[in-house]
């Protein structure tokens, strides 16, 4: 059924991604691919994997942006611009446009925890849901002909056969910088909700009206390069004792 849940879901499971912390190592990207190629649904296929024109389906990708403040200059010329690594995966939107456009009922949002999933046995691979998503969260698996997307590692988070510490999405579990957090964003007392409140967590493209569950924590303010302590200059005046003697002797040579 591709109508969205009529009532707000009691749980809103999702991710909080800290743009101040992400170092752009792509570990989450690789672990996502590794887990999901053997987990829920069809394997995440690659096309021409060892050839010149390699491509494939990935559910999590990291872009890197350069942000230049008003009056700032670009990197390499002067120093006010900053680099922000930007992990991007499904935001599990409350008003998910990818769900309502689906003609078959394959694309759905779970009424209990808000996770947006694709039932691959029903998917005809028309690609309309990928068109409807403004974030590029969905990618077609060209081998299986079905749409793939982040499942929030539904086969990990509820999986009682793995250690409790591992019951988190693969990307969160693997992040070496702790830039990714998983939790219930409907619960104001959850760690992720507190983080969002304290750091001013934001929605991506709020103007698209999708009401994403995942939140992004903005990079913290940085002090301008010019106000940083300058490196010590070459200067031997005021030296005393042994160093004054050495300075004097070396000058004479």
């Amino acid at each position: 059924m591709t109508s969205l849940p009529a009532l707000p879901t009691p749980k809103k499971l999702g991710l909080v991604i800290d743009l101040d912390v992400c170092v752009g190592c792509h570990a989450c990207v690789v672990n996502c691919k590794e887990w999901n190629t053997g987990g829920y649904g069809a394997a995440l296929s690659d096309q021409d994997p060892y050839g010149a024109d390699v491509s494939g389906a990935w559910l999590n990708r990291i872009h890197t942006f350069e942000v230049v403040p008003q009056g700032g200059e670009i990197v390499g010329e002067a120093g006010e611009a900053r680099i922000v690594h930007f992990p991007k995966s499904c935001l599990h939107c409350e008003d998910a446009p990818c769900v309502t456009v689906c003609p078959t009922g394959a694309s759905y949002k779970r009424a209990d925890d808000g996770i947006v999933l694709v039932d691959e046995d029903m998917c005809i691979g028309c690609g309309l849901c990928a068109w409807a998503c403004p974030y590029g969260a969905r990618e077609m698996d060209l081998a299986a002909g079905v749409m793939k997307k982040c499942t929030l590692c539904i086969d990990r988070i509820y999986n009682e056969t793995i250690a409790e510490i591992d019951r988190q999405p693969a990307c969160v579990r693997t992040c070496p910088a702790n830039a990714r957090h998983f939790g219930d964003l409907a619960d104001p007392s959850s760690a992720v909700s507190i983080m969002v409140a304290e750091r001013g967590g934001m929605d991506l493209m709020p103007e698209q009206g999708t009401r994403p569950v995942n939140k992004y924590l903005p990079p913290r303010a940085r002090k301008p390069l010019a106000s940083s302590t300058p490196l010590p200059k070459e200067d031997t005046t005021g030296a005393t004792g042994f160093f004054a003697w050495l300075d004097d002797m070396l000058d004479r040579i």
Partner: peptide
Amino acid sequence: TATGLGAIGKVRLFERPHVMENYLTHE
């Protein structure tokens, strides 16, 4: 708006997430 980084300044793509084309860039 796509990155939420507009409060800091003008946003420009510095590095793509991948070297080759993908489903999104193709479609």
